[in-house]
């Protein structure tokens, strides 16, 4: 069938049904606090790496939870693991372990 009418621009929407939740599931299994984020942004505000680059830990977390994992490897590589985000997080998220497990999940999927 030929394309006709107004179809939604691909990539514009979060395609929840077809997204990849493998990283999200892996991280949540090993660090349940991963999904407690309320998006206050303190982590990004204090983030050492976010001062020099467009790294945004809040967004990385959220995107993985939505299954939007494209380019996540390059993003998470910017983290220095200094732990400031963990100190400011009002929800008590174990942010450093979230980062570790995201990296673990990525390397696992590469190994497969």
């Amino acid at each position: 069938m030929k394309e006709w009418g107004y179809s939604i621009l691909k990539g514009r929407q979060i395609d929840f049904e077809n997204n990849d939740f493998s990283i999200s599931r892996f991280v949540e299994l090993h660090e349940p606090s991963f999904s407690w984020c309320i998006g206050c942004g303190s982590c990004t505000a204090t983030c050492s790496a976010a001062k020099f680059t467009d790294f945004n830990p809040r967004k990385v977390n959220l995107l993985i939870q939505r299954g939007e994992i494209k380019g996540i490897e390059d993003e998470i590589a910017k983290c220095m693991l200094c732990g400031k985000c963990q100190l400011v997080c009002p929800r008590g998220i174990n942010t450093r372990n979230v980062v570790q497990n995201i990296k673990r999940a990525i390397s696992k999927s590469y190994a497969l």
């Binding site: 020099f52 490897e73 590589a77 910017k78 390397s107 696992k108 590469y110």
Partner: peptide, 12 residues
């Protein structure tokens, strides 16, 4: 540890 996946070239 996983394959090294950190890079800090952005640091001035």
């Amino acid at each position: 540890t996983f394959p090294q996946s950190a890079q800090f070239k952005y640091l001035p």
